[in-house]
């Protein structure tokens, strides 16, 4: 196998590793919120450094390959996609970190009696992330297309949740602080979903060379 091909494989493995780390961070931070688990939240926050280090390593390797190999066609699309997905993953790591700090704050406040389904929303978001990574691994544009569909559902849930939390806060002024924290939780989850969507769009470009962002119509 060509040396370049081996290095591309190495880069792919690293990005999937990073994906695994971010996935774990998202999963744990959501559990920390739902189960009011301060210890778990702490673990998530401790793991952020590793994700950031990984982001820099991937950036460096991808840039090196761009410069030294001057890739074209599918190699070029792969590398530019890796660079963008890398940024998305790092942002998701930040958001998981943010969720964990919300979990720490919420644990000090009385639990809210709310009718919003955080576990459902989070499982939806987590599955988007999982599918995006899978689609990246297999360069599967169809699977990536699925992720784009899920994003609308997440946005819908977020809208409902906002209404519910605001209504609850109006009815129970003592819960305003916890309510604001919850709004951030929902907001962060939704943002993670957005980044998963970006990833899926990059995967489609990588696999087919077609730009589906911002309802772009031109094929490249």
């Amino acid at each position: 196998m060509r040396h370049f091909t081996i290095e591309l494989e190495e880069l792919k493995t690293k990005l999937l590793q990073m994906g695994g780390m971010v996935e774990a961070a998202v999963h744990r931070s959501v559990r920390a919120v739902v189960e009011r688990d301060v210890e778990l939240a702490k673990k998530v926050r401790e793991g952020e450094g590793a994700i950031n280090t990984m982001e820099m390593e991937i950036d460096e390797l991808a840039t090196k390959l761009l410069v030294l190999q001057q890739p074209v066609a599918r190699d070029l699309r792969f590398l530019t996609s890796v660079l963008k997905i890398n940024t998305d993953l790092e942002r998701m790591g930040d958001l998981a970190n943010n969720l964990a700090s919300r979990a720490q704050s919420l644990s000090k406040l009385p639990a809210l009696k709310l009718d919003i389904d955080i576990p459902h929303m989070s499982s939806l978001v987590e599955s988007m992330l999982l599918k995006s990574l899978d689609a990246f691994l297999r360069a599967d544009a169809d699977l990536a297309q699925d992720v784009l569909m899920s994003d609308d559902e997440v946005d819908r849930i977020r809208g409902e949740a906002y209404g519910e939390i605001v209504a609850h806060m109006q009815a129970n002024p003592s819960d305003v602080q916890a309510g604001v924290e919850m709004i951030f939780v929902v907001r962060n989850l939704e943002r993670i979903g957005d980044h998963a969507t970006n990833m899926a769009e990059d995967v489609i470009y990588m696999a087919k060379g077609v730009d589906v962002r911002h309802h772009a119509k031109t094929s490249v």
Partner: peptide
Amino acid sequence: FKNPSKKETEDYVT
């Protein structure tokens, strides 16, 4: 060079 439509082209340019 970005997105050739034939596999032979892609294999050659990469």
